[in-house]
Amino acid sequence: MDLDQLVRDFQKQDERAFEKLYHMYSNSMHGVIYNIVRDHEIAEEVMQDVFIKAWHKADSYNSSKGRFFTWILNIARNAAIDKTRSKAYKNSGKNLNAEFFVDILETADSLNDKVDAIGIEKYVKALGEKCKKIIEYLYFKGYTQKETSEELDIPIGTIKTRNRNCIKDLRTIVLK
């Protein structure tokens, strides 16, 4: 299946293409959103907002700007982060500091339609602490290299290669 063609169809408001893309990315986006908002109902709300926004803003995507996954990941992160800044969310008393995606993996085992969640958890735990944080910041929180280097107190010049090595480790775990 040609992803480029699928995306082009989606941009022409093709419903089938939209459904296919949803199935390809919905679990991933759900995970990213939940990791940020940490609330089932709010995560579902944001999920809907994200795919509705993607549908309406489909024209703004251009493959020369990057991967379609990266585009929708960006929408999801921003929508989720916006939600956490809303008054209603702040009043709900959630504290998001110091929570990492690894925590979710530990508590999500029981869900049977998850993709190898149990296996992934075991190995992801084996990743170094710095690796977990680099992945959290760069992919799931949308931090820049500079912000990530400041957060982790490591030189900005080494972020790129450290991340490369971390993703390598991750690939051996999840894509074996």
Partner: peptide, 26 residues
């Protein structure tokens, strides 16, 4: 492969089924 690794990892973070949301969105 990089993208796929990230998708797998984040999918494992998903808190539950979301198929019902597709209909709501549509």
């Amino acid at each position: 492969e990089i993208e796929s690794a990230i998708i797998k990892l984040s999918s494992a973070m998903s808190p539950g089924d979301n198929k019902h949301l597709l209909q709501l969105i549509k």
